[in-house]
Design a protein around this nucleic acid. Structure first.
Lengths: 198, 198
DNA sequence: TCACCTTGTTAATGAGCGTTAACGCATTTC
DNA sequence: GAAATGCGTTAACGCTCATTAACAAGGTGA
């Protein structure tokens, strides 16, 4: 059986470093030589693992969108029959975990989508849309007086709020992960509450 | 005397189109020929008006940060002695106006900062910092129990919320500007309220 | 009328960069 | 032990693209 913490494969190393570099300086702003150097091989050696630079970005973005959606579906399934408040809390918690633990990916997620080939972009958009709709349903269950377009706008805005962490500061400048997570959570709930008020 | 609505100068046309294109496809993703074509001249003709592509981006970003800061200072001055609630409302209103009316600029604002030359980047960062600190002061006046780091995080998060509009949809898909503005305003206030709660 | 500045144009230059070619060397497989 | 395969390397190619050169034409002022 596979151990729970395998040594990261080359592909995974590359993806991780590529994500960091893309987030820092943009897809067009980083060269393949840099990505190679970041994992200790140089330039064209990457082509043993990926078809090209585009392929790395595509795999990253599809992976992100897929993870978010899968995680949310999982949380919805586990929280079957509980209060809608708790379901929303669970979604928020999941998104915060992601935003705090995978900052580069969150940055890429809404910044480099347009650099994808048509087919990949459509796939990512579809996954994102499903994720949003899933939130919208939960939000409207909790605030039924909220019309659907408004609910969708509210969800997007809360994403903006939660995804703001990358802009916050250098790695260590936050007041502690738990504190930050709690603050973000309170604010997200407060924003929805205010959106649902008439 | 100059009429109130002068014909836009060439420089202004160029800046406007460049902002739109940069926001759509990223600084590195758009070529000078495209920018030229967007204003009816071609490629190198731009160099009669700007020192280079970098200079356009620099002027845009410095302009944005400056406008935001100047506007906020103005609002603070006008709202001297009124309730802190009203002051915060005024800041929020100003930021929303900006986010809704100058979407491309808002997008550039937190996306392409790293493409600037050192000196320009420092200037923009300084303007941004002043803008944030100004909000932090107002927020802490309204919620004194909020510690300064938390207040700063909260302000950044609300910026994320307010700046989410560009991601929302194609131009016309929003439920009307006034409605959207009101929703964003309520959510921002709700988020701060929740942040200030113990 | 004649210089001159403004604002364009197209052609050339030169750097950067993604990608492919050609080759080397462990390690595995039969 | 030989062949194949995985995973690197460096060198070369070709394209894109910002920038500069060289030149043109319209308007303005002496």
């Amino acid at each position: 059986m596979a151990t729970r913490t395998d040594a990261p494969t080359r592909r995974e190393q590359i993806l991780k470093e590529a994500a960091r570099l893309f987030a820092e300086r943009g897809f067009h702003g980083v060269g393949v030589d840099e990505i190679g150097a970041a994992v200790g091989i140089s330039g064209p050696g990457l082509y043993r693992h990926f078809a090209g630079k585009d392929a790395m970005l595509a795999e990253l973005l599809v992976g992100i969108s897929g993870s978010l959606l899968t995680g949310a579906k999982q949380r919805l399934k586990e929280a079957d029959g509980v209060a809608p408040e708790a379901v929303l809390d669970s979604l928020i918690e999941g998104h915060i975990d992601f935003a705090l633990d995978d900052r580069p990916l969150i940055t890429l997620h809404d910044r480099e989508l347009d650099r994808l080939r048509d087919t990949d972009r459509k796939l990512v958009r579809q996954l994102q849309r499903q994720y949003v709709e899933l939130w919208v349903e939960v939000v409207r269950r909790l605030y039924p007086e909220l019309a659907e377009p408004a609910a969708r706008s509210a969800v997007h805005s809360v994403f903006g709020l939660l995804n703001s962490t990358p802009h916050l500061a250098r790695p260590g400048a936050l007041p502690g992960r738990a504190t930050t997570a709690a603050l973000l959570h309170r604010m997200a709930r407060g924003a929805f509450e205010a959106a649902g008020a008439r």
